[in-house]
């Protein structure tokens, strides 16, 4: 079975014929060649594939592309279209919130989702908000500092 979907990604609409089993993360990476979204596991644990789907942070590996039909998706490529980092990216840069960078796109969206609902989170609240995003390099501490810095810079 082939399925027609129309998904807006970073403000641009993509119409594609897909297999129903195509996951959103594969749609992004393979169908429209936005490879910034990463795949780190196969059991919905690691969060590397986290994107915004209609402004909600979701794991793109646990969502069919068909479920995103007609929806709007924001990926890491959509945050600095002119090459200028947004304030959240800037905070991760300044606070050394990344090392190998593989978990970073997902971390950014998990952090963004938190700051939308809590503009002044405590370190503990940040750690809880990041519980679904695994990082093997940083020990999370500088990610927590990054999110604090972003909050202080007014990121919501």
């Amino acid at each position: 079975m082939k399925l027609s979907v129309s998904i807006q990604v970073n403000g641009r609409t993509y119409d594609r014929e897909i297999e129903p089993r195509l996951l959103l993360v594969h749609f992004l990476r393979d169908s429209i060649a936005l490879t910034g979204t990463k795949i780190g596991c196969d059991t919905s644990q690691c969060g590397a594939c986290t994107v915004l789907l209609d402004d909600v942070a979701v794991k793109a590996c646990t969502c069919l592309a068909a479920q995103a039909d007609g929806c709007s998706v924001t990926t890491i490529e959509g945050l600095a279209p002119d090459g200028r980092l947004n304030a959240l990216q800037e905070a991760f840069w300044t606070k050394h919130g990344l090392q190998c960078g593989f978990c970073t796109p997902g971390m950014i969206f998990a952090a963004q989702a938190l700051l939308r609902v809590n503009g002044n989170p405590s370190p503990e609240q940040i750690r809880h908000a990041l519980e679904g995003n695994l990082c093997r390099c940083t020990g999370y501490q500088n990610i927590v500092r990054s999110v604090q810095a972003a909050a202080a810079a007014g990121v919501r």
Partner: peptide, 21 residues
Amino acid sequence: IRRREDPRLLTGTARYTADFT
């Protein structure tokens, strides 16, 4: 000082092996 490698990692423009076609 902050890292020179970070802007590409923060914007999804870094290319890991799986990202090449």
